[in-house]
Amino acid sequence: MDQSEIDALLTGGGKSPKKAKPAAKAPAPEAVSAPPSPPVPVAQAEPHQDGSGHVISELDTVTSVTERESNKVMDQLDQISRLVSRQQQLITEIMSHEGAQAPGVQKAIHEVMSASKEIQDNVFEAMDLMQFQDITRQKLERIVHHLRQIHDYIVDLLGTGLKSDTERPSISHTIAQTGTTPDENKAHADAVIEAFKTQKKG
């Protein structure tokens, strides 16, 4: 969903979307330019004979769009990472030049190197945090699972209609409690593994 669609929703959906404001700042010429985003596929708005099927299809669209957009973020992070590596390589080359041996220049170079490493660390951390996409996807899959159960129950109750038959991924029964804090379940998992190994040895 782009900004104009969000604006249209906020204004009641009937009004024309507001015109996007011009960007406050033009990007610096050396900045990494992102490729233009392809149009986001929007789920079928037509009424569906099976209401749950329509909702499931919309959730599937949300999942595929977030996965695609997450990969675009990853592409940008990869690009930043490559540029920082190149920068570090160039600084290393500069350090060996005769003119760079002055103490003031050396100090400045070390500061640039240190900042560069910090950027690289932050880029890696941002990449790791993208795990939220998979966790969100699995939370949606759990919702789909419940919707299908309700749908099949109603089909049974009414004695008419088709039951869900499309194969879906298995679901995590603990995903509802899963947060986005890395390693929040590490100690618990490690304790279970340890107990299993001890029991197996005994």
Partner: peptide
């Protein structure tokens, strides 16, 4: 993302050597 004790045990019984619950850190 499966973090339940019975899930971890089931995976170990199936032949998994070790187990990481998402989200994880690179260090883990």
């Amino acid at each position: 993302t499966n973090a339940a004790k019975e899930d971890i045990v089931e995976a170990l019984q199936a032949g998994v050597n070790n187990y990481v619950v998402k989200p994880f850190t690179p260090d883990t």
